[in-house]
């Protein structure tokens, strides 16, 4: 088995029950997926829980995986669903979201960036984060958010322009 192959071919191996393929995918995406949750949630422990859930859901749904979508879109779609379920739960529990990904140990620059990101509207923020940190292509973001590529591009552009203003006014 080629463990250096594409994500998609590895995922097809996982579908066949290959453990090494799953491990290879885990090792490629453990950090990115963890980062995905970590930048969107306040509680580091929950972020890790959800990263775990993502991989288990990936494994669980492996039988149903088809090569129709790019693997990354598929994986982040799982993560996104888990995140929105988590947010719904949190909103119900506390009446409001307290998604404050704050750690006082963060250096100033980080705090500054985070504050700026928080001020974006939800749609722009999500596109920006997916591009800057998850480094998804416009097409992948479009597939994930189920919007046209042009929409992705214009949201991203507006998000970056807004960030430019927010970061400059330091």
């Amino acid at each position: 088995m080629d463990l250096t192959g594409s994500d998609e071919s590895l995922m097809l191996e996982v579908k066949q029950g290959s453990e090494p393929a799953f491990i290879a995918l885990f090792e490629r995406y453990a950090r990115p997926i963890h980062g995905y949750f970590r930048r969107r949630m306040g509680d580091p422990q929950r972020a890790e829980d959800l990263a775990q859930e993502t991989f288990l859901a990936l494994l669980k749904g492996a039988r149903r995986y088809e090569r129709r979508a790019l693997f990354r879109t598929y994986l982040y779609a799982i993560a996104m669903n888990l995140l929105s379920a988590e947010r719904r739960r949190a909103a119900k529990d506390r009446g409001s979201t307290t998604d404050e990904p704050a750690t006082s140990a963060d250096p100033d620059a980080v705090l500054w960036v985070r504050r700026a990101v928080e001020q974006l509207d939800d749609q722009q923020r999500e596109v920006l984060l997916l591009r800057e940190y998850e480094q998804l292509s416009y097409e992948e973001i479009a597939g994930l958010l189920n919007v046209p590529v042009n929409t992705v591009r214009s949201r991203l552009f507006r998000a970056r322009m807004a960030m430019k203003e927010l970061l400059v006014t330091r």
């Binding site: 963890h34 970590r38 890790e48 620059a109 980080v110 960036v113 800057e132 960030m163």
Partner: peptide, 15 residues
Amino acid sequence: QMRAWTVEEPSPQLA
């Protein structure tokens, strides 16, 4: 500037 926002590694517990 955005690259400054890094997050810590996932704990080994994750694996």
